[in-house]
Design a protein around this nucleic acid. Structure first.
Lengths: 336, 336
DNA sequence: ATGAAAGCGCTAACAA
DNA sequence: TTGTTAGCGCTTTCAT
């Protein structure tokens, strides 16, 4: 068994209060300070955060629930977040719910039992029921990437509508008129926003939206490949496609390669996320790039500030980060 | 504040032992069972795992320390592992140490304070010093991917030497004689093994190894791009290259694209990991594919079995998983 | 500045 | 089967 404060007390002859005071920045006489430090070294003492957590009702642990850890967008967010949190002494318990609301519900209860101090989530359940239970605990919740009607908490979102608008406007500017879109699942917040942006750009240019050019994918690689195939076979007149997340972008590139089509000669493409992948493609991809690490960092900072001033009924934060159009060589200019 | 067992006791009129017995699968009279369940519902009671952990000295939490969460190899391992662990009631605290031994050391101490029940790590520090402190705690440790001399614990490794041998042997079989290798950092276990496999294949074919064809990369995308450029400029006679991890493979593809070279006409390539990326490339890449999810799963199972039989001084497990050569179209056949 | 003692929510030994 | 009680390691009054 690991050493306890009692052991330090025994070795130094000091009372528990003094030792505790030492660890919590209180005033301890220089002489005793030294004694304690010697004992710590000798005993290899490490504070027991579990006991501390029980006593103070603060575990210094944040729960994170995401749809897929294998989704680069998610893993980059977590990297950015965990970095900040750990440097402030907070642990991060990650739960990958595989985009399954039932698993998500279990994860929430799990984290409640673990008495995490707060929750950060890219929510899977679209109606917000899974969050309700946790929110009853009065602990801070920060939602990332997806907003949920009727859930009052801090959010860090990306301006998806604007991003999609920019992408499609760019394609239109290059002369494209028949632009396909591989959207996300109908009920996912980001998917709806991106689809809106797609429509906005058409409206702004006075181009009618054609239903046959819209496909709803599932944000997976396999789904992206299936979607591009479906788009191509249904729309012989299509000259460009906009793919709305990274995994489906990779899938679309696979599909295009396996059909023997060439970018951008046979088809122009604007993808989403992962600059490195975009540059590795041949030709390099034009993409919408989201500030993933920044999302994680912002979420961590918000969480920390909520935790440091518990009572403070500050107005809920609703941060919107911008995404960027990065130009590669996957879009051809079409002349009228 | 959340409800406690005391609250249930008060509401039901039962003693704490009965309630505790209910939660721990003991015998409770049917009538009381119902009473307790009603109270749980009414109070929204959730077991306090922190208090339980303090009492039983088991937090049901596993610490995971990895070099980079943004490395797909690592994130896939964690996905596989977390899945198994959570289904058994264990939480996973992930610490990304950014391949920095100093951060790794901090992470270990951090996890010790958090009183995790065990540690799973893809170690960064090559000499094992960072692990020593944790191992003193007598808690189970499972090392993944990289072995460390003098650290006695369970390990789950990949047969890197065989994998590299297979890759290079295949290239030789296709007629290549001047094969470059982008290896990993000199001090990384997997890098040394893969380099050995490269040499083995040459020896087996009676081809001398040329120093100029060996480059040590740093397992990053940027490093891969730099390495392929260096290889190409130094070796005009080189006809093929073997890249020994996923990120550097992506980097190499970027470098090749940006130089305007074509696969496999100008250069043949065998990469590493991420089947999806390999298929998305044009032409599709021939790669060595590692069983990442399986590594995570195996690690979780070993950890769980160690945890379930604490005393049992079973022989240390040393698992070697195989990797597979997946053929794409990035290797040309050369005729003599 | 320091010590003694209560108690956070739970489990487990013991008694009934 | 159920109730009573001590104690896990810590923080935090309250005295001194």
């Amino acid at each position: 068994m690991a050493a306890t404060m009692k052991d330090i007390s025994r070795v130094t002859g000091l009372g528990l209060a003094t030792i505790s005071s030492y660890f919590n920045g209180g005033n301890v006489r220089e002489k005793n300070r030294e004694k304690i430090e010697q004992a710590i070294d000798a005993l290899h003492y490490e504070v027991n955060e579990v006991a501390r957590g029980l006593r103070t009702d603060a575990t210094h642990t944040i729960g994170v629930v995401i749809p897929e850890l294998n989704n680069v967008f998610c893993s980059e967010i977590i990297t950015g977040m965990e970095d900040v949190l750990r440097s402030e002494g907070y642990a991060t318990i990650v739960c990958d719910c595989r985009s399954d609301p039932a698993i998500e519900k279990d994860a929430m209860e799990f984290l409640l039992r673990k008495r995490v101090d707060g929750l950060v989530s890219v929510p899977t359940d679209t109606c917000g029921n899974n969050l309700l239970e946790f929110m009853k605990s009065e602990k801070p919740v920060v939602l990332l990437d997806r907003q949920i009607q009727g859930i009052a908490c801090d959010t860090v979102l990306v301006n998806n509508r604007k991003a999609a608008f920019d992408a499609v406007q760019y394609l239109i500017g290059q002369g494209h008129r028949n632009i396909g879109i591989i959207g996300g699942p109908r009920d996912v917040y980001t998917a709806r926003e991106r689809l809106d942006g797609y429509a906005d750009a058409h409206r702004a240019a006075g181009i009618p939206v054609q239903e046959s050019l819209i496909v709803h994918g599932d944000y997976t690689i396999r789904g992206g490949a299936a979607a591009i195939n479906s788009l191509i076979s249904r729309n012989p007149h299509m000259t460009a496609a906009f793919v709305t997340n990274y995994e489906m972008t990779m899938g679309a590139v696979i599909g295009i390669n396996e059909r023997g089509l060439r970018l951008p000669g046979d088809l122009s493409l604007v993808g989403y996320d992962n600059l490195e992948f975009a540059r590795a493609c041949s030709p390099s991809l034009t993409i919408i790039s989201q500030p993933t690490a920044m999302i994680g960092e912002k979420a961590a900072r918000i969480m920390l500030s909520r935790l440091s001033e518990p009572g403070k009924e500050e107005k809920l934060l609703n941060i919107r980060l911008g995404a960027e159009l990065i130009k590669g060589h996957s879009v051809a200019e079409i002349r009228a």
